[in-house]
Amino acid sequence: MSKKTLVIGGGIAGITAAQKIAQNGGEVILIEKEGELGGNFAKLAYTFPVLADAKMIVTREIQTAKATSGIEILPQTELRGVSGSAGDFTVELNSPSGTRSEHVGAIIVAAGFHYMEPTAYTEYSYGRSPKVVTSLEFEKMAAENRLPKGNARVVFVHCVGSRDKAKGYRYCSKICCSYSAKHAIMMKKANPDSKAYVFYIDIRALGKGYEEFIRDAMEVYNVRYIRGRVAKVIESGSKLIVRAEDSLIGNPVEVEADLVVLASAMEPPEGSRDLAGILGIATDEYGFFQEAEVNVRPCHSSKSGIFLAGSCTQPMEIASAVAMGGLAASEALTLIR
């Protein structure tokens, strides 16, 4: 076993892929464009559908990768060029210390995703009111103990950028229903005096423990679910007025809120099309990396020897990204053996 594997992206999918290859005797170069490993996972406080300490889990996985022999981790490093073919690629890596060339047998793309900036949603006062934040900002507020105190009302808005072909994407981002429930629960746990409202269109929470998780938000934590897409968020003095139609009773509804949290869509990672151009692989209509076959060969890119893992292929929760990282590792191992 002489050839290395290049893993692009140090999020949970890339970390998993690197671990599995190294644990099976392979050598890995794991590059990450940021200074630290962990990706989007490292920005979270808790996981779903089990409320576990996200920081603890991701730190553990990073430590495992660092402690596993055969993994070279290169932070602040980006791919600049690729030549060759499956089993015999030459890659050019750029980091602050300079450019270096490496021979690798396989490449795994685990470039992650990006949370959409909902700047187009002027009707939600995003960017105008500091009390309208994205889900990612809510995670940060929770981590920094800055969630509203006292008798506060917090409104969670589903499908901001998802299922919106006019201003966002046609697809469903899959995880927003679950993470909004998680945020509502986090809010109620951090401040039991607060009130949480979730405006939904449908609830899409599929998988073991997901339905129960949503029902717990409603039944155990008394989060109020209202069926209707929010139409407007209006600044009114120190408060926000959230306006929607409750389509179950066919009547307009207004909630006075202290904080509005927008569940912004998962979109392809920044620069995904450029990266695909360097690699010579296909992307889909949105810029996610295109799998060869959705069902049976989800890890194969359009080019032999280059594999895909995690949310750079489609909106995906952590468990799927881990599974895909493992599968991509096994595909790479077949080439480098």
Partner: peptide
């Protein structure tokens, strides 16, 4: 139509 009811929520006369 997605039946998301955003139109009704924004409509100044739906009430």
């Amino acid at each position: 139509c997605y039946q998301c009811s955003k139109c009704s929520g924004g409509c100044p006369f739906s009430r």
